[in-house]
């Protein structure tokens, strides 16, 4: 980040805080995290994340996967070479036999191994915590796929057709869940979250982990949640309840 941007960001942040304080203490006109104006860069004050509530996720329901495929122009996955940005995992507790269902996607780690290993810097983490692949500099070495602890990445094995204008994708690059960055930057919500809500489950919650007033932060503060492979200390942006 160049110093001018940093200063401008700090100024804007300060101004926003001041305005918030002056309007009415305790009353928020809008969620601060959603306030990214069009044309503004992603802010490091925000940390986008999701909370997956496995107690609400229905076994056999695939709506989040379908919504993701539709949103990003991904063909339905039938082979081991097909891309899957989000998948439903059916779990069985080895001791009790309890069955759990949960979606797994890129965990948008704060310390992403894929970003560490990428030779060209094509794998990167945005200021707001979203982990992406810059397909313009990805050379297709697949080292990030070796490094990802969550099997979250796919390699485009074939020429692509039917790309969405907001989601370019092509043969020979690695890709994964973008947290629907093209929607989030316009104040929207990831498609899987919307689909889950539309199905009446509301098992996925999206929001700013840095904002203590956001719904996701309040839920994480009130119920026990875990991160996948917490032992790796990758500090995932995606949390799970009921695992």
């Amino acid at each position: 980040m160049n110093p001018v941007d940093k200063r401008r960001r700090e100024f804007l942040g300060g101004a926003a805080a001041l305005a918030g304080a002056m309007i009415a203490p305790g009353v928020f006109l809008y969620d601060y995290a959603q306030a990214k104006a069009p044309g503004e860069p992603a802010s490091g004050k925000v940390r986008w994340g999701m909370l997956v509530d496995t107690t609400k996720c229905e076994s056999g329901c695939n709506d989040c996967v379908v919504a993701c495929n539709t949103e990003h122009g991904l063909p339905e996955a039938t082979r081991a070479t097909d891309a899957q940005w989000i998948r439903k995992v059916e779990l069985k507790d080895l001791r009790s036999g309890k069955a759990i269902s949960a979606p797994v996607m890129c965990q948008h780690c704060a310390e992403p191994p894929c970003v560490d290993v990428c030779p060209t810097g094509a794998s990167f983490k945005r200021e707001d915590g979203i982990v992406l692949v810059d397909r313009h500099t990805c050379i297709g070495c697949r080292y990030c796929m070796m490094a990802c602890p969550y099997n979250a990445r796919s390699f485009v094995h074939e020429p692509t057709t039917g790309q969405k204008p907001d989601v370019p994708r092509g043969k020979g690059c690695v890709e994964s869940c973008t947290l629907c960055v093209h929607k989030v930057d316009r104040g929207g919500t990831p498609s899987c979250v919307e689909a889950c809500a539309a199905a009446g489950h509301e098992a996925i919650l999206f929001g700013d982990l840095n904002d203590p007033q956001s719904e996701i932060s309040r839920r994480i503060a009130s119920v026990a949640t875990t991160q996948l492979r917490a032992d790796l200390r990758t500090d995932n942006g995606v949390r799970y309840r009921g695992l």
Binding site: F124, E127, D134, D166
Partner: peptide, 18 residues
């Protein structure tokens, strides 16, 4: 602008391919 959009999340870009 592609770097601004992809890496810094500046949307909409003045010069975007779309």
């Amino acid at each position: 602008d592609r770097d601004d959009t992809v890496r810094r999340g500046i949307r909409p870009a003045k010069h975007s391919l779309a």
